[in-house]
Amino acid sequence: MAFLSNHCLVLLSLFILITPLTFSQTPSIYDILKENGLPGGLLPKDVIKSYTLSQNGVLEVLLVRPCFTKFDTNALYETVVRANLTYGRLVGLEGLSQEELFLWFPVKDIIVDDPKSGLIVINIGLAHKQLSWSLFENPPDCKSDFLSKF
């Protein structure tokens, strides 16, 4: 009987040691953004299907559907959002557009120039916009129908 108890203790100890490795959690995309000096709210909530971050810094985020949201102006996320991720920067962005003066422009880059300033620079090619970090602290709701959001 003592042999069986010791055997069970050994098996239980092995299970406890192995379990954290087996069930390790992948960080959320919002955590990845924050770890890289960007606000988590740059991507919408409840529509992220998955993401990959390659060793060379290419971040690809898959959404379950395209959707609209609003920061200071209207924004459209496509089903794939891709960019080169470095600390404080999403460069060469694809899959995100912003409405300016009733026209839609692709967002090229999102850059945090100086984290102390509380500003984020949005590059839409024709212009650079400085927006408050606070607009992007929380992931926004995202609607599939443009009119239902506004």
Rank of each mutant, 00 (worst) to 15 (best):
L101C: 00
K143G: 01
E35Q: 14
E78A: 13
L126W: 00
S132C: 01
R89P: 00
V107C: 01
N6W: 12
L11T: 02
L76Y: 14
K129T: 00
Y51V: 05
V112G: 01
L53S: 04
L14K: 09
K116T: 14
L43M: 11
K108R: 15
L59G: 08
K116N: 12
L14D: 05
E60A: 12
R65K: 15
L135N: 10
G95Q: 02
L62D: 14
K70Y: 11
N84C: 01
T73Y: 01
K34D: 02
L63R: 07
E100K: 11
F105H: 12
I120V: 15
G92S: 07
V47A: 08
L21V: 09
Q130D: 10
C142G: 04
Q98T: 08
L85Q: 06
N123H: 13
I111L: 09
S132P: 06
N84G: 03
E35Y: 07
L12N: 07
S13Q: 10
P115R: 08
V107I: 15
S134D: 15
N6M: 03
C142F: 03
L76S: 05
P20E: 06
T19F: 15
P39M: 09
K108T: 04
E100S: 07
L38R: 03
L101W: 09
I122C: 02
L9W: 01
D31A: 11
L90R: 03
A75E: 02
I111E: 11
K34C: 05
D31Q: 15
C67W: 05
L119R: 13
Y30C: 06
G37V: 01
L21S: 09
L96Q: 03
R65N: 10
L11S: 08
F71S: 11
A2W: 08
P39F: 08
M1V: 10
L12Q: 12
S24I: 12
S97K: 15
C142V: 02
S97Y: 09
L59P: 07
S13N: 08
K143S: 13
R65P: 00
V91T: 14
Q25A: 14
I124V: 14
G41K: 05
I16M: 11
F136M: 02
S54V: 02
E78D: 13
K34I: 13
P140I: 06
V61Q: 07
L63H: 13
N36T: 07
V121D: 00
I32G: 09
L90V: 04
D31K: 13
R82P: 00
L101F: 11
L33S: 03
I48D: 04
P44Y: 07
E99T: 05
F15L: 15
L96T: 03
V10H: 02
C142T: 04
N74D: 13
N123Q: 04
